[in-house]
Design a protein around this nucleic acid. Structure first.
Lengths: 228, 228
DNA sequence: ATGGGAATACTCGATTCCAAGTAGTCGAAT
DNA sequence: ATTCGACTACTTGGAATCGAGTATTCCCAT
């Protein structure tokens, strides 16, 4: 159990080898052919590293080593019994137990007050426009595929992605509306902070003013931990 | 430019130092106090590595080195002008330009056919239950905080998380309904695949049968790339 | 006064990641 | 006939990651 279950690419490798023995390059080609590159991050460095780690853990084994002409060797790997068990267990876990992830946009939202609110409104508007286009494009290509007879099974991960994307679009629209009409809680203090930063006051002076003007609001910066 | 913009923890460090100079341990303490650990992944190893990389890139600088008693040194860092620019640019990017991410559940969904459909239904039901609980708990604690007067600004990233979580709950409910009533496209072939795997037929034989029984459907495995 | 747990402030090293590079092969077009 | 670009198949090295460990001090109850 050298490596924990970290990189889902390792799971994808197990799933492929569970179907059929193959060499690493063929794995990446197969994954790309089946459009798994959208849902599983593939890159050569990781792929070969991941294969070696699976080998060390006895989850896969070398079946044969081919050489044609002067090309590099191709090592064909197959799955072991332990590998099949690991695949089933890992996939079972991933499907049934949510894991906390850290999308970059979530980080950006939480650090957002470092920029002035009017700039942020601009930036979020751009993001919203981009995501609306992406959503429409995604829905359209999905619709065409379904109309042409593609079973949903083959693109369920894409449906999931679109569901989350739609939720983000709704979130951004609502958030922007509240920012624009000034009803967003904390906006006044946020704006004042950047007004004061544009002066040559020191940090301490700025905070003194803010605490004075927005006492109840700013007290919450330190009380955040009272709620979950 | 040693390290690109990879780890958002580096951005968080820039934001903190933009407000006030401090030593690494204080950064982690401040982030935790403000409940940023939910949106930015913090761990000591990464923190010290990230700080050093920012130092190498001239985005932060050493302000002083304190020592009290026999404790380890505390190095206090401050942001540089280049660091301020980098912070603004990076945050601007993150807020305005969507980046493709790879949630583990998306990978799991795309690899899901490796398990039998009835098992998957079970697993997704468990996930749905867990996410419904999480959603309710999250909404409740958020509601309490808002009722107690917390400005939304201080938990906007949490609102975003809840929006995505709600979307996942809806997606899972709808998906499960279609799976349960048998209307999900591709389900029959999927079920047959696992029926055949339970026999002692070879892989090639299994595929011959499946292609024969579900020709139009399975042809899509290789045609996936025709659509986006 | 003393033992134990929490908090402070890092350090370490084995593993993992990843973009870029390398190096051969093949087919089509100039 | 040969250049070109796309494909095949990996290698490399420098970063980044992450959990666990270390060592000290503070505080509080016994």
């Amino acid at each position: 159990m050298a490596t924990a279950r970290r990189n889902p690419l390792a799971l994808a490798v197990l799933v492929l080898l569970h179907e059929e023995s193959m060499h690493p390059y063929q794995m990446s080609a197969t994954l790309k052919e089946r459009r798994k590159e959208h849902s599983v991050k593939i890159n050569y460095g990781s792929l070969y590293a991941v294969v070696e780690s699976l080998l060390n853990r006895g989850l896969i084994e070398v079946r044969e080593t081919l050489r044609s002409g002067n090309r590099p060797e191709r090592t064909v790997y197959g799955i072991t019994e332990a590998g099949r068990r690991e695949m089933i267990e890992w996939l079972t876990r991933l499907l049934s137990e949510p894991v906390k992830e850290f999308p970059q946009f979530e980080a950006a939202l939480s650090l957002m007050p470092a920029l002035p609110p009017d700039d942020v409104i601009d930036l979020l508007e751009r993001r919203l426009a981009a995501q609306q286009r992406a959503l429409e494009a995604g829905r359209e290509s999905m619709g065409r595929a379904i109309d042409a007879g593609m079973p949903r099974l083959f693109a369920i991960e894409h449906e999931y992605e679109l569901a989350l994307l739609a939720a983000e679009v709704d979130f951004l629209s609502a958030f922007l509306a509240d920012l624009r009409d000034g009803t967003f809680g904390g906006l006044a203090g946020w704006r004042r902070l950047h007004e004061l930063r544009a002066t040559d006051l020191s940090n301490d002076e700025i905070w003194a003013i803010l605490i004075d003007e927005f006492k109840e609001e700013f007290a919450w910066i330190e009380r955040a931990d009272e709620f979950e």
